[in-house]
Simulated scan of single mutants.
Amino acid sequence: MTDPVEFFDARALRLVEAPIPPLSTEERTAMDRFWDESVALQPALFDGPAVACLGVENAGAELLLSWARVTYRYRALRRVESCSWLPASVFVTVLQPVTEGGLVVGRSSSATAYPGRWGTPGGSAEPPAEGEVLDLAGLRRHAAQELVEEIGVVADPEDMTVWAVTRGEHGNIGVHFLAPAAPTALVLKHHEVLAEAERTRGAGPELDRLTVVRSVENVKSLASTADFLPQVVARYFQQQAASRA
């Protein structure tokens, strides 16, 4: 059974860059070995730039997140026994409501790192160029980009609001944004056009199927989900019910 995710209720988020904690020669060798094994099993993995969370401090109304520039192979440290540092990921997701009521969720295709897993559109945060800062505006732009790339829906980053920050499996930090509502038929059409374009160029959509969930029970009926999805959906509908009341 998946452990419950933790919600942070801070009203502001500040990100501070820090150096990568040092690794011993043995830890680095083991990391590289486990990474190579993972790639052999899942060729979709690639060693691109990523953001690792080094710590989270809830300082009153502000959430302080320290982070470091890494690559995806650092996640293999989670398999190294008694490692001195276990990196947590930072990712963004988008809650895309539909005007008829409900949230859009998608299933990751077989070409992704998590095939068959249902979740909201999103992806791992990427570090900015050297000398530039990672901030909330950058995460918001990244979330809007993921929305376009995964379901074909265009949203102005300025129209997307920070809805929640969560901590889940491996200490991973999720920054969840809320997008403006759109008609279900329009969302599905955008995804259909996107998927066909991806197939035409010999690739394939990152999300091979979309559906709309209108309750936690809908989420429970899905075969495999991101760890945060049941609680995020539950909280979203609780807030919707409270606002109507």
Rank of each mutant, 00 (worst) to 15 (best):
F177Q: 09
T184Q: 09
T200S: 12
H190M: 03
T200Y: 03
G204Q: 06
G204W: 10
A195Y: 03
A197R: 15
V193P: 03
L188I: 05
F177C: 10
L194N: 06
A203S: 13
V187T: 05
A179H: 00
P205H: 07
H191K: 06
E192H: 13
E198Q: 14
A185F: 09
T184D: 02
V175E: 09
P183A: 05
G204P: 09
D208K: 14
A181I: 00
I173E: 06
G174M: 07
L178Y: 00
L210W: 05
L188H: 15
A195F: 06
T200R: 15
G202A: 02
V193G: 04
L186V: 14
E206R: 09
R199M: 07
P180F: 01
E206P: 04
G202V: 02
A197I: 10
V187Q: 01
T200F: 06
R199N: 07
G174I: 03
T184L: 08
G174K: 09
P180T: 00
D208A: 13
R199T: 05
P205E: 08
A203G: 11
G174A: 10
V213W: 11
A179W: 01
H190E: 10
G202W: 01
V175L: 12
A179L: 01
E196R: 15
D208T: 14
P183W: 05
G202T: 02
H191C: 04
P205R: 08
G174E: 08
A179S: 06
A197W: 04
R209F: 05
H176I: 14
P180Q: 04
E192A: 15
N172Y: 00
D208Y: 12
A179G: 00
L188Q: 15
L194M: 08
A203Q: 11
E192L: 11
H191E: 05
T200I: 04
T200H: 07
L186D: 15
I173S: 04
P183T: 03
E198H: 11
T200L: 12
T200K: 12
T211F: 13
A179Y: 00
T184F: 01
R199Q: 09
E196I: 10
V175H: 04
R209Q: 15
I173K: 03
A197D: 11
E198Y: 11
F177A: 06
T200Q: 13
P183Y: 05
V212C: 07
H190A: 09
A182P: 00
E206Q: 09
E206H: 04
E198A: 14
G202M: 01
P180C: 03
L188S: 11
P183R: 04
V175C: 12
A181E: 04
R209D: 14
R199K: 13
N172H: 02
E196V: 13
G171Q: 00
L210D: 11
P183M: 05
G171Y: 00
G171L: 00
A203F: 07
D208M: 13
A195G: 09
F177V: 05
E196S: 14
K189L: 15
R201K: 08
I173V: 14
E192C: 09
A182M: 10
V213A: 12
L210Q: 10
V193Y: 06
P205M: 13
I173M: 04
D208L: 13
E196K: 13
